[in-house]
């Protein structure tokens, strides 16, 4: 009967809403109530307030932009912002990653530079008369945990120069590369994965220095 204790509530952090709803469904009516409250409490211990603030700010700014900053829209916008924030919390509860704003900005800069580079690279190859491509499939075993970190990794991977995420087989990614760079592809993926892990405050060891290309 004590399965709603603190450890239980903490593991609920890592679960999607679906599984935690099943869990509370097994317990009694009374337990469901306190379990939910404890879960909310444990979110806030795990630093979820940061996630809450970030989501509310994002939704508010998006509403402000959508309504062209018209002050008359705020009366309707406030309930919308609150509802959307609550629904977002219910659909995807905060995972308790220790992300920092400075890292997010640094990653955004890296992402922007990478996608510009990626666009230039592919455009150059598409327009060059000789069509210099040597496509190849590679497999890559991810070290990032499931959920948001893997998703961010896969999205950025598809927009970085030369690589494209084609399939996921468990922990293994099937990556299509436009240019066969041999071991270079693997090294680039490792570096990208390390950057994503830093974004989420996760400790994945940085890649070893790049081997000298022959």
């Amino acid at each position: 009967m004590t399965n709603a204790g603190p450890t239980r509530a903490d593991t609920a952090l890592d679960l999607a809403l679906g599984s935690s709803a099943v869990e509370t469904g097994d317990a009694g009516q009374e337990q469901r109530h306190t379990g939910g409250l404890r879960k909310v409490g444990s979110w806030f211990r795990a630093g979820a307030w940061k996630s809450a603030v970030a989501r509310v700010v994002f939704v508010s700014v998006a509403w402000w932009a959508l309504c062209d900053g018209d002050p008359k829209s705020f009366a309707f916008g406030l309930p919308v912002v609150l509802t959307v924030s609550v629904v977002s919390f219910l659909l995807s509860p905060p995972q308790g990653y220790g992300w920092r704003l400075t890292e997010v900005i640094r990653f955004a800069g890296f992402f922007l530079a990478g996608s510009v580079h990626g666009g230039f690279d592919v455009a150059r190859r598409a327009l060059a008369p000789s069509l210099p491509i040597s496509p190849v499939f590679v497999r890559y075993r991810m070290r990032l945990p499931e959920g948001a970190p893997q998703t961010v990794f896969r999205i950025t991977l598809s927009l970085m120069p030369g690589t494209l995420n084609a399939d996921v087989l468990g922990e293994e990614l099937v990556v299509h590369s436009l240019v066969d760079k041999g071991a270079g592809i693997h090294h680039e993926l490792e570096k990208l994965e390390w950057r994503v892990s830093r974004l989420f405050g996760l400790g994945i060891p940085p890649p070893e220095p790049e081997p000298v290309h022959a």
Binding site: F120, S158, L159
Partner: peptide
């Protein structure tokens, strides 16, 4: 071509 170039 579709993802990278068109996004840029």
């Amino acid at each position: 071509a579709l993802t990278k170039v068109d996004n840029l």
